[in-house]
């Protein structure tokens, strides 16, 4: 396995993004607990906001790891992240209010073990491997928990396995109907896409981070539509409006940044041959 250390640092240091992602996602997920305190369901969308902040952190972690040329594509890192995160998240839902913290710690442990295996047993010998996989497993668990709380209104196991609009019992609940698969894949696509889509010689950190937020809000739109099956009409509508507004703003911003960075911005023009060809 070759190690090419071409890690170009962005303007925002990685540690700052860790702080924003970690604190932001935990605060976002815990704000959905207002649902339980107030008896309303309109606070569910905070889970999605928390997940978006975790994804912003995650996109920079993937950038840090994949700059080493890990020998597989960028998307595989996203799948690994959510595959290890979902185990921790599902286990943590047993612990009620403490679930986000338990999920975070447990995912970090799973990630550290996987990182150790990749570096020492598979012998990949990448300096940032253990830290990156630990971070990514934690991000996976937090993102899945955030989106789950947004869709079903709670991050505790009992509501996730019982509440539904359909009277079809377990098979129509969040876990029973496998909605968690949708959350898994939405998160895994959203964490790998920002770096996978913007990699190249003229990579810019701000453009990648805006894309991460855009991907997060796009996933929120899908989750908001699914939440109509679990939440009251008003709560689901609030989620949908917040998601659509956030997505639209960051999509337009991302296009603006792409225009800023592109060599040329042409409409229906022929191939511009470079000099010397």
């Amino acid at each position: 396995m070759t190690v090419s250390a071409s890690v170009g640092a962005g303007a925002i240091p990685h540690n700052t993004l860790i702080g924003v992602g970690l604190v932001g996602s935990l605060v976002g997920i815990y704000l959905t607990y207002l649902n339980v305190i107030t008896g309303l369901q309109v606070f569910s969308f905070f889970g999605g906001i928390g997940a978006v902040l975790a994804l912003v952190w995650g996109s920079n972690t993937i950038k840090t790891l994949c700059s080493y040329g890990i020998g597989t594509g960028v998307p595989s890192a996203g799948m690994l992240s959510f595959g290890s995160g979902v185990i921790a998240m599902l286990f943590a839902t047993r612990y009620g209010v403490a679930a986000p913290i338990v999920g975070l710690v447990l995912a970090a442990i799973v990630g550290a073990i996987l990182g150790y295996c990749a570096n020492q047993i598979v012998n990949m010998k990448i300096p940032v491997m253990i830290q990156s996989i630990t971070e990514m497993a934690a991000i996976g668990a937090l993102t899945i928990m955030g989106y789950t709380a947004m869709a079903a209104g709670s991050f505790s196991m009992i509501p996730l396995m019982s509440a539904s609009h359909l009277d079809a019992g377990y098979w129509a609940t969040f876990i029973g109907a496998s909605f968690i698969v949708v959350v898994f894949i939405l998160g895994a696509m959203a964490i790998q896409h920002p770096f996978n889509a913007t990699l190249g010689p003229s990579w810019q950190q701000d453009r990648m981070l805006y894309l991460a937020v855009e991907c997060g809000f796009l996933s929120m739109i899908v989750i908001a539509v699914i939440s109509f099956a679990f939440l009251s009409m008003n709560a689901a509508l609030v989620s949908l409006v917040v998601s659509l507004a956030g997505w639209l703003y960051f999509y337009m911003e991302y296009i603006r940044l792409s225009k800023r960075d592109a060599a040329m911005w042409l409409d229906a023009k022929p191939i511009v041959e470079p000099e010397g060809h």
Partner: peptide, 8 residues
Amino acid sequence: LGRIASLA
């Protein structure tokens, strides 16, 4: 947009 802008 991302891939092409990064090939500037």
